[in-house]
C-alpha cells in the first residue's frame, strides 16, 4: 500500500454555467474511496456553488447542490472557503449552505465542515498539498 497523500480539490467556477463543478464534485466522491487525506477549496466564483437556496425547477437543470451535503459521509470534512472571494461577491458565511460531518470518535457529533480562510491561509494550505486538482 502506498502512503496517504494530501489532496486538495479547488473549485473556482460558478455552478450550472459549465459542467466543471458537477464533474469536479463527482471526482471528489469517487476519489474518496481511495482513503487519502482530502480537502476542498472554494475560491473565485466557486463560492457560488455553496450558495444556499438553489432552486432549478424553472430552469429545468439538475440541482446538484444537495450532493455537497453528502461530502461528510464520504469523509471529506475540511471545506475551505476563501474570505476575499466571498467579500468581492457581496457574500458572507451566512449565504452558504451549512455543511457538516459526523465524528464517529465523538459519539457521532455533528461538526461544521466549512472553514472560512484568508487568501494567505489558503496559499499556505495549497503549498502543503501533495496533489492539487482544479475544476
Amino acid at each position: 500500500m502506498s502512503e496517504t497523500k494530501k489532496f486538495m480539490y479547488i473549485n473556482r467556477r460558478p455552478p450550472y454555467g459549465t459542467v466543471y463543478p458537477l464533474e469536479g464534485l463527482e471526482v471528489v466522491l469517487i476519489g474518496a474511496a481511495f482513503e487519502q487525506d482530502v480537502c476542498m477549496a472554494f475560491i473565485s466564483d466557486g463560492v457560488f456553488q455553496l450558495k444556499q437556496g438553489q432552486d432549478t425547477i424553472e430552469s429545468g437543470m439538475k440541482n446538484f447542490s444537495p450532493t455537497y451535503r453528502a461530502l461528510g459521509d464520504y469523509e471529506v470534512t475540511r471545506i475551505y472557503v476563501e474570505r476575499e472571494s466571498l467579500e468581492e461577491r457581496g457574500l458572507t458565511e451566512a449565504d452558504l449552505m451549512p455543511l457538516t460531518w459526523e465524528d464517529e470518535d465523538d459519539d457521532w457529533a455533528e461538526k461544521p465542515s466549512i472553514q472560512i480562510v484568508s487568501r494567505t491561509q489558503l496559499s499556505d494550505l495549497l503549498e502543503e498539498q501533495d496533489v492539487v486538482f482544479n475544476f
Binding site: 450550472y16 457560488f48 444556499q52 438553489q54 425547477i57 424553472e58 440541482n63 447542490s65
Partner: peptide
C-alpha cells in the same frame, strides 16, 4: 432572467435596485 437567479439561489432583494427580473 428569473429562473437563472433562482437556480443559483439569488433572491431579488440581493440585486442592484432598478434591475427588473423577467421570466
Amino acid at each position: 432572467l428569473g429562473p437563472d437567479l433562482k437556480a443559483r439561489g439569488l433572491p431579488e432583494d440581493r440585486l442592484i435596485p432598478g434591475i427588473k427580473v423577467v421570466g
